[in-house]
Design a binder for these strands. Structure first.
Lengths: 222, 222
DNA sequence: ACCTGAACACCGTTCAAGT
DNA sequence: ACCTGAACACCGTTCAAGT
């Protein structure tokens, strides 16, 4: 009975765990329901009782991934150790990029959206929960006076997007792992340069780039 | 003979074209060599003469995609119409995000790196060529005095990464297409705020975030 | 040189049947 | 309730054989 614990209710969890491992080591192409079943000593029809689809299993993996991501994000964003805000932000950024870079196939699953409309809502909610941590950080920064005013949601989105892009490049071998942390830190510096209000200047959109506030030809057909 | 032009040398091109169309409409999961062959009125063994692997065909598609991307990028980056640098940069950014958002499956193929070591070099070169356009733009901006000094490669990387991240979010339905251009423009604004030198201040890393320049505990274990 | 078509091993999915 | 195992339709890949 201890030898085959999957037969009395644990199969679903075992499938997810095993799938995660296979995904991490062999990528999405190395993941097949039949081999999963084989590895767990179960017939190839068994998984369907718990995941109607292969897509359903993949969705479960993505949701699991978001769970871990958000947990880590919340932990990283909650350290208010009295250090400069820039430090905290840099820490969160580096932590995120490392997480996302550790398991490229999982990250793909999380953000690639070849999901069924079914779990799509749950996934979108999970993604938004992650974003919410960053939004909260931004609001804290604004309250402190360390960040420009402006829609926290948008600011968080840009921050998060930059990290996501760096991750994407890292996973595509466009940046090498060696200089990954450095690039992440640099990105935060550049963004903070824009996000940090400066005593002698008004915020970006009124003084720094006045041109952008004037009416101008539609950039569409460029 | 005009009815089946694939049989005398045109098969390879026909496969790529057809595959691009299928990829755009049905995603990566809807793309099979056998159906491709069927649609082109050719036996299922025929494609192997031109692409030893399914992966090889996918690599060809990715390279094609980079070709179009880089062409567009070069065109967009070359308009030096005397407008403010911020405008040009915004135009390029919006153009890139639109391109990358038009064909999500292709973009995945381009940046997801489940490629064979074979074409990996060619793909990396293609990606770098795209980056080079942005680097050139950055250098132009620096020469004009519109951008802070600093390694153009790194600056371009951060710029490009931000757009890539926004694209990723858009393709994952985390941002809706409606506000996509707006978010892209806002991202450029935020980045430029950091990238634009201000008369009364020294560059970011010496004045704006002095804390980052001091020695401090390793952010690793956060 | 290029394509055909049978063959092989592997999928995902369904479903009656077992316990 | 949960799992089995045969069945079905579809893959990618290989390879002798054709033209």
């Amino acid at each position: 009975m201890t030898a085959r614990p999957y037969h009395h209710g644990g199969l679903r969890a075992a499938l997810v765990t095993q799938a995660e491992a296979t995904l991490r080591t062999s990528g999405i192409d190395g993941l097949s329901l039949r081999e999963l079943a084989r590895e767990l000593g179960v017939s190839h029809g068994a998984p369907q009782r718990h995941f109607r689809d292969k897509a359903a299993l993949l969705d479960a993996l993505a949701i699991e991934g978001f769970g871990r991501l958000n947990e880590m994000l919340a932990r990283a964003a909650d350290v208010d150790d009295g250090h400069a805000f820039a430090w905290t932000l840099t820490d969160v950024a580096v932590a995120y990029v490392r997480f996302a870079t550790e398991d490229p196939a999982l990250l793909d699953l999380m953000f690639t959206h070849k999901h069924q409309a079914d779990a799509s809502d749950e996934l979108k909610a999970a993604a938004n929960a992650g974003l919410a941590c960053v939004v909260a950080m931004v609001e804290r920064g604004q309250a402190r006076g360390d960040l420009v005013d402006g829609d926290p949601q948008s600011i968080a989105m840009v921050l998060f997007a930059t990290l996501q892009g760096i991750t994407s490049f890292a996973n595509a071998d466009i940046v090498d792992p060696q200089s990954l942390d450095e690039l992440t830190t640099y990105a935060v510096e550049l963004l903070l340069g824009g996000l940090t209000p400066h005593p002698d200047q008004s915020p970006i959109n009124s003084t720094f780039i006045p041109a952008l506030c004037e009416k101008r030809p539609d950039p569409a057909q460029s």
